[in-house]
């Protein structure tokens, strides 16, 4: 469903992002919706399909300051959070903030880091603040983490545990570009070169206003009823080890609101819930076989539940 209003700021941002990231408008919109719903985003896919480019593009278009950390297995928590060093001139310790002190942190290949480092970041995501050496320091607002990870079947990875996956509002996959998009990419060269030329379309306060407007999108009793039935269906479905938590239900509603808002609507429709459900639910639902639910499982779930 394309955005209906072409002149809203959201539509402008999406149009600008689509010009950089070719043929991935759904994923781009999901990523933007994630930020509109004040959530952190996890992008999972193979190396080289444009994860970093997507994160970078969104940060630039929204006018956020941007930091990038490439996670490796020998990385320590201090490498992200920052360290205190002794300043001879002042005769005192001085805190050097780590890359986490930025508005958008791109955590590249988060599942290559050890669980200890992963959890340091994830704590910052949850609390909105960092505590080191007994001192608590607030993170900038807004603060988003866009993490990318390789499929955990690849070697040298530490898969994120269930509880930490839950901190990501949405998880998306990019997938290979289609034939035409790839041809355009080949003809025009890589997209990274365009990034520095992108101008911010919004100021920081404008984005906060958009977030507020997205959260105010109307969800009718009939829609909440549908959403609840959907969540209950995941709990009763014998295919899944356990269903969606109440927190996941809240995430689903927030994401559906942002999706409706990005479509230029002031009311949430079942379509919006259905559109974001895979991104909300797939990393939260585990099949009895041990793997995460795939797109077909979610589609079957949706098909099994008639709109009342």
């Amino acid at each position: 469903m394309p955005p209906t209003s072409r002149h809203s700021p959201v539509a402008e941002i999406l149009a600008a992002a689509d010009a950089v990231i070719l043929g991935k408008s759904t994923q781009t919109r999901l990523a933007l919706c994630c930020l509109l719903a004040k959530g952190h985003l996890l992008i999972e896919d193979l190396p080289g399909v444009g994860k970093t480019t997507l994160a970078h593009t969104l940060a630039r278009l929204l006018g956020f300051e941007f930091a990038r950390v490439q996670f490796t297995s020998d990385m320590l928590p201090a490498d992200i959070l920052g360290v205190s060093i002794f300043d001879r001139e002042r005769g005192d310790f001085r805190f050097l903030p780590g890359p986490v002190f930025s508005q958008v942190l791109l955590a590249d290949e988060i599942n290559r880091a050890t669980p200890k480092t992963q959890s340091a970041l994830l704590e910052a995501m949850e609390e909105g603040q960092v505590t080191t050496e007994g001192e608590t320091r607030p993170l900038p607002k807004p603060f988003f983490v866009i993490a990318t990870q390789n499929p955990s079947s690849q070697i040298g990875t530490f898969p994120l545990p269930e509880s930490q996956l839950d901190r990501f509002l949405l998880r998306i996959e990019l997938g290979y570009p289609d034939h035409d998009a790839e041809r355009l990419l080949l003809e025009s060269g890589g997209r990274r070169a365009q990034l520095p030329t992108l101008a911010a379309l919004l100021g920081a306060s404008e984005f906060a206003a958009l977030q507020q407007a997205a959260a105010a999108v109307h969800a009718s009793p009939a829609l909440l009823d549908y959403l609840q039935r959907l969540v209950e269906a995941t709990r009763q479905d014998a295919r899944f080890v356990h269903g969606l938590s109440p927190r996941a239900a809240l995430s689903l509603l927030a994401a559906a609101r942002a999706w409706a808002f990005s479509g230029g609507r002031q009311l949430v429709l079942p379509e919006d819930v259905q559109a974001v459900l895979p991104a909300v639910a797939r990393h939260r639902l585990r099949l009895l076989s041990g793997s995460h639910a795939d797109a077909e499982d979610i589609a079957a779930l949706i098909r099994s539940l008639p709109l009342a």
Binding site: L269, E271, I302, R303, L305, P306, L307
Partner: peptide, 12 residues
């Protein structure tokens, strides 16, 4: 219309 299909999806 499929039973699970929302109005706008159906219209499209």
């Amino acid at each position: 219309r499929a039973e699970w299909e929302g109005p706008l999806d159906f219209a499209q």
